[in-house]
């Protein structure tokens, strides 16, 4: 059904950095920084679903929070609908939150246990002044119905619902202010697999119904494959590959992506893939490796990788980009590159 309408860039992230200070010493001076997100740039088109994938600690959730200024970024620009969010005052940003919403990972922690479901949603409606006070209850009932929660349950507290139901409440809450962009921060990873599918399908339906744009943050490639148009792979605070879903899954152009994909259990017995097991741990984001951040674990690393940090190289004309020196001159077949491991 995808009619290619005029593609407008809704969100553009430019050189975003999120460094968290490490305090130490007798007087609590800043002795170092955790470089959780280190100079990343990407954009999201209106109506599309872009996913950010990576291991825990790669900076994907931090990126989501930085975009929403839930933690103020260290440096960079977040341009939403033509306006730099980082330039807004606190009050302007509060108003702007109507357009950008977030769904959190843990549905048990993301709803205030002391508020009823209707209070949780009503607060958002009230602050952003979405509907007049008299119509709020009707609106709340409509929202709950949209996500499949019975209206008779609207005055219950979060603890009276199951995980899947709570996540639906979180979705209803995010939807309540008619946002343009919803950041789904591991929105289904805390749920049972069967419930995951339900919630993912709900998200897809809602996207169609309300013309939503999603930035989907996940570590689960299966989930990402189901929902995304384009995928961003992150490693240790950096983007290592950006591609549309098909290119990324069928023709990955970064050793880290290849390793990630090889870890997905395959149901296809004919097509046996070679598993690439990464050696060692993810290095510390406090003092990341020189050169390419992945070189300490990369089976294809050579001298240049240890010295020079790769930029995002264009792999093809379709926007497939990879931060690997090997693809500097266009895409290659990694199965033919000799491995060091």
């Amino acid at each position: 059904m995808s009619m290619t309408t005029t593609t407008k860039t809704l969100l553009e992230v430019k050189n975003l950095k999120q460094y968290f200070p490490i305090k130490g010493g007798l007087f609590g001076r800043t002795v170092n920084h955790v470089k959780a997100v280190d100079d990343i740039s990407f954009h999201v088109q209106e109506g599309e679903t872009v996913s950010i994938v990576g291991e825990s600690g790669c900076g994907k959730s931090t990126t989501g929070r930085a975009i929403l200024r839930l933690d103020n970024p260290y440096a960079g620009e977040v341009i939403f609908d033509g306006e730099n969010l980082l330039g807004l005052s606190k009050a302007e940003m509060r108003k702007k939150r109507q357009d950008l919403q977030i769904i959190f990972q843990d549905p048990y922690a993301s709803l205030n246990p002391r508020q009823t479901v209707s209070q949780i949603i009503e607060e958002a409606l009230q602050i952003q002044n979405i509907v007049p006070p008299k119509e709020r209850r009707k609106k709340i009932a409509d929202l709950l119905q949209t996500v499949g929660i019975g209206t008779h349950q609207m005055d219950r507290h979060p603890h009276e619902f199951s995980g899947g139901q709570r996540q639906r409440i979180g979705i209803a809450r995010a939807l309540s202010v008619n946002p343009k962009l919803i950041i789904c921060d591991e929105a289904v990873s805390a749920l049972d697999v069967s419930i995951q599918a339900q919630v993912l399908n709900l998200l897809k339906d809602l996207q169609r119904k309300f013309q939503l744009t999603y930035l989907f943050i996940s570590h689960d490639l299966g989930v990402v494959r189901h929902i995304s148009d384009r995928i961003i792979v992150m490693y240790l605070g950096k983007i290592v590959e950006i591609a549309d879903k098909k290119s990324l899954f069928e023709n990955p152009q970064h050793p880290y992506t290849i390793a990630l994909l090889s870890a997905i259990p395959s149901t296809n017995l004919e097509k046996k893939r070679e598993r690439i097991i990464l050696k060692g741990d993810v290095p510390s984001p406090i003092d990341p490796p020189q050169g390419c951040r992945f070189h300490t674990r990369c089976p294809f690393a050579f001298d240049r990788c240890r010295a020079e940090q790769p930029g995002l190289y264009k792999v093809d004309g379709e926007g497939h980009q990879s931060a690997c020196h090997l693809v500097e001159n266009g895409q290659i077949d990694f199965s033919k590159v000799p491995s060091n491991h």
Partner: peptide
């Protein structure tokens, strides 16, 4: 906790 972030995200 996340519900505090939720509140901020609402614009509280």
């Amino acid at each position: 906790q996340d519900f505090i972030r939720t509140a901020y995200a609402k614009g509280v």
